[in-house]
């Protein structure tokens, strides 16, 4: 058979073509079994790729410190000691405090970004106005902005006004990358909303604001919620700015883990760090698995379909 360009898709099949299809059907079936096997094996490779290092972190977290370098691929010398050590403040670690800090910073950043970003996203998705392209470009540019370019001036500014190491010194810079992400994701979600319903509400006598609040907002709740998760995760995972602007009392978990101290001065506390890493990661992984579909939709909405 000759390879006809893909453009001929819509042409109805001729008799001759139907016949040739029937002939190849058997071969196709045999081929598809082989293909199914290949797909399954490939899928297995992907799962192993994604989960193996993660699995290694978890089983190391449960392994006795004396067997740190054990190479068994199943849990051995299981213990909970690493978790108690991770939370212990005797060695100068503040994992518990850091978790609270991250939670607090994440909630504040997410709330501010959503509160302000929703208005902008509504305008970008719903209204027809001049300079929309410029605004979109600006927000997109802001999301690609290198965080390191903010550090120098902020470091100096926060030192001068006595904000160094405070929560607001960590929340404000995080807005710089969470807000563009929020606006971007929400805009693409809002575009898919059934805006006809808003029109209907307006015909029934609602003002535009009322129509938005009473009709669109309830429908938009899943979108807003997904965006909130993405915003929170990106704030929770931030390291660069916090590592420079936080103090021992306000440092988030990422900074705490990066500088984790062990009981022996010249020995890396691998098992303790893996335990701390597990504690920090497990809530996120659970969150992500529960809202898997939504998160994928949110990620790709901002990225590709845009």
């Amino acid at each position: 058979m000759s390879a006809v360009p893909a453009g001929s898709t819509t042409i109805p099949l001729s008799n001759a073509q139907s016949k040739s299809i029937a002939k190849t059907k058997v071969a196709v079936r045999r081929k598809s079994t082989a293909k199914r096997w290949r797909t399954t094996i490939s899928a297995l490779v992907i799962v192993v790729w994604c989960l193996l290092p993660f699995y290694w972190m978890i089983i190391t977290a449960f392994r006795d410190v004396g067997y740190t370098y054990d190479t068994a691929f199943w849990p051995t010398h299981v213990t909970f000691d690493n978790f108690t050590t991770a939370f212990s403040t005797k060695l100068g670690n503040h994992l518990g405090q850091a978790l609270l800090n991250s939670l607090f910073i994440g909630v504040c950043v997410t709330a501010i970004a959503l509160l302000i970003g929703t208005f902008a996203a509504y305008a970008l998705a719903r209204l027809d106005f001049r300079a929309k392209g410029i605004v979109l470009g600006l927000i997109l540019g802001a999301s690609m902005f290198p965080g390191v370019a903010l550090i120098t001036p902020l470091f100096q500014l926060f030192t001068n006004i006595g904000w160094f190491g405070t929560y607001q010194a960590l929340i404000l810079p995080s807005i710089s990358f969470v807000l563009p992400l929020t606006v971007y994701t929400l805009t693409s979600f809002f575009r898919e909303m059934p805006w006809d319903l808003e029109e209907a509400a307006r015909i029934d006598g609602c003002t535009q604001a009322q129509a938005f609040r009473k009709v669109i907002l309830p429908l938009a709740t899943p979108a807003v919620f997904t965006t909130a998760i993405l915003a929170f995760i990106s704030s929770w995972n931030e390291y660069l700015i916090s590592s420079q602007l936080s103090s021992d009392a306000t440092q988030p978990v990422t900074v705490a883990i990066a500088s984790f101290a062990g009981s022996q001065p010249h020995q890396e506390p691998y098992t303790t760090v893996m335990a701390a890493g597990t504690i920090v990661t497990i809530p996120l992984v659970i969150l992500v698995l529960i809202f898997q579909r939504r998160i994928v939709a949110g990620l790709t909405a901002g990225g590709v379909k845009g």
Partner: peptide, 19 residues
Amino acid sequence: AILVPWAIPTAVTAKLWYF
């Protein structure tokens, strides 16, 4: 599974590969 590496904070990823 594919969302797991994405969800892990980079700081933790770095420590994990450090180990």
